[in-house]
Design a protein around this nucleic acid. Structure first.
Lengths: 216, 216
DNA sequence: TCAATAGTGTCTATAAGACACTATGCC
DNA sequence: GGCATAGTGTCTTATAGACACTATTGA
């Protein structure tokens, strides 16, 4: 069993209404110096489970503590890593502000550089999963900051789903979901227009997501 | 990296309208002789990926080639296996006829014996996933044989979801899904009643599943 | 012919989508 | 005051659920 066991993290954010993924310059072989997903070995003495390893990688490499971190699946085989048979557990996370470190860079998900291993394939799969989940869950709220207005969240959904959503119906379904609460008295000023009420996630939903029977 | 990497398979079937899971008597340590999920190490020279290892385990231990085999997720940590830090990739499969081998036995999913590792936890998760998927996909057809009648499939859905489904509406939604085709001229004789038309999955759906926006 | 289950037609209730309207703050 | 965007009320349309009916076989 010389199997290589790693975790990889697909960190996503929204920049100018486009999904972007965080890539890092690899600092060791193989593919040293090449842009790739942040990842690494599981550390048996510090990681309580594979998900903890992914969280550690995100913290170390991007300084990010993501409230939403979910397993996507595994990728494995004899050919995906030049070192031999390998298996990686892929996690994905959504963050609001694109935190920029020295070696991290954000790339639009449909304009990626050449990627090592099967990372292009992995990103394709995760993006499809996120888009699909957005249609029937509250996933996209994690792309907003702690506080946000309904029109802002509306724009985020439209960006992720890349289709227009009726404003009034969007509000109605948000209301039905009952996952947001008003921030009392707080509004986001409008430029030359009416300010919008600020909302935040209700506590029970801060680290999980809410699912609707039909789409949002 | 002395990490233990395994796959485990949750093989499910329906016996007398109850979900049952296939358990095997372990033939090696740890927990030798104890009922457990079929599983094992990945064989780097024969398994093209972790899913292939799961398929191999199912074939070797249960003689089953399941048309539907999907990854559920990973379970990992320092404590789940007495040998040390371990990670298992869990797959699940649904089969029609409860094939019985010498060392395999079917247990109702809510009346399991004491299980080693975190197998009880794994089964709970998979069963929840299967029940949830049944509500909006064609998953349960894999619990039927190659050919089946609509009333039979109807009963399977009711068993998995454990709630009554309106016959007429069930038929309408099946029709909308358009995943079945009539077996020309073939019917299942009724005892003292009208025989039912036999159907089978259309080819494109024989190894995948179809998803509805709303539930079935 | 009748018991029993297969299969269909149609009405009703609910939820989604469309759209027009009102409200409010900033220039 | 008027422009721009926030926020609401309501009509229409699609889909899900309920239910009653007809159809077909075997005893």
């Amino acid at each position: 069993m010389a199997t290589i066991l790693t975790v990889d993290a697909v960190l996503l954010t929204l920049i100018e209404s486009e999904l972007h993924v965080a890539l890092f310059k690899r600092d060791s072989a193989p593919f040293k110096g090449v842009w790739a997903l942040p990842g690494g070995y599981v550390h048996e003495n510090e990681d309580d489970h594979a998900g903890a390893a992914a969280a550690r990688v995100l913290l170390d490499k991007a300084g990010v503590v993501s409230p939403y971190l979910e397993e996507y699946g595994t990728f494995s085989g004899p050919a995906r890593d030049p070192r031999g048979w390998s298996l990686t557990v892929v996690y994905y996370a959504l963050v609001p502000a694109p935190v920029l470190g020295s070696s991290v860079q954000w790339f639009p998900v449909d304009k990626l550089p050449a990627l090592p291993f099967d990372h292009a394939h992995i990103i394709t799969g995760v993006v499809a999963r996120v888009r699909s989940k957005a249609a029937y869950s509250s996933l996209p709220v994690f792309l907003c900051g702690e506080q946000f207005t309904v029109p802002e969240l509306h724009a985020v959904y439209e960006a992720v789903l890349s289709e227009p959503l009726n404003r009034a119906n969007f509000r109605r379904k948000l209301e039905d979901l009952d996952i947001l609460e008003e921030v009392p008295g707080a509004t986001r000023p409008g430029i030359r227009s009416r300010p919008a009420q600020l909302y935040r996630l209700r506590k029970p939903y801060r680290s999980a997501l809410s699912v609707r029977e039909r789409g949002l």
